[in-house]
Amino acid sequence: MIEEPYRWVEAIANRREYIEAQLAPGSPIAALGYRDGILFLTLGKTRQKIFEIYDRIAMGAIGHPGDIERLRMAAIELASTEGFSRSATDVSLRRLVHYSLSPVLKTAFEQIYGPPYLARMLFAEVGERPDNDLFLRVDYDGEIATNGATYAQARQDFAVLSGTQQSRELMEASLKTQHAPDASFEAALNSALDAWSIGHMTLQTKDAKELPERAAVTKYRKEQLVNSGIEAALLERDASRAIRYRSLSDKELRSLIND
């Protein structure tokens, strides 16, 4: 079958369609660089979606739990052996994603007789200042998106992950206007919650092209917070401790939410 090139292209296209459909209901994750660190946030009731990878690196992921687990383990093993044999400061997210994860994902995706990884991941590495923060989103086909400036976009101090492109774009549009890198923790938390709500609302509708009304977002957010738990984690900018990752409990966040 794959001796014929067009069949291969067709198979890849089918596979893409299948994976996109599987990922589509995934609850969005927002990662925001603010004054004192990077905040990861999502809402959910079931599985853990935000993880510590290394001293300054965290990951959020949607997809099949088995695949997420394999990729998470691989990332931790790679970072840990690198950090052990050289030093913690030599562990680089850019290298981890570009050199190790992306090629494997691409190979798995394109070998159509083998299983692809059903996962979409968002990594962040906290820097000394907000403008050193690095965000990398890696898709099931090995595609990488960064928060760095490109010809098409200015540098962003946040990154998001969602089940559909539409949902992701609207979350980004919301954060572009609402979030600034010198934001306080409280401001970042509320921006992240808004972005999540917009992302999640968009997943429920077919053709959302524009940002929903402010009031609608607030209402939706309120409703969701009643039923869902907040899952959040921090990568702290404070360099006095080597390990920057800290998970935040639902309880300590509730009081900081603006209604």
Partner: peptide, 13 residues
């Protein structure tokens, strides 16, 4: 392939 972990990685260690 020139990557640091192989496709069938199981994360068992």
């Amino acid at each position: 392939s020139p990557v640091a972990f192989d496709q069938n990685f199981s994360g068992a260690a």
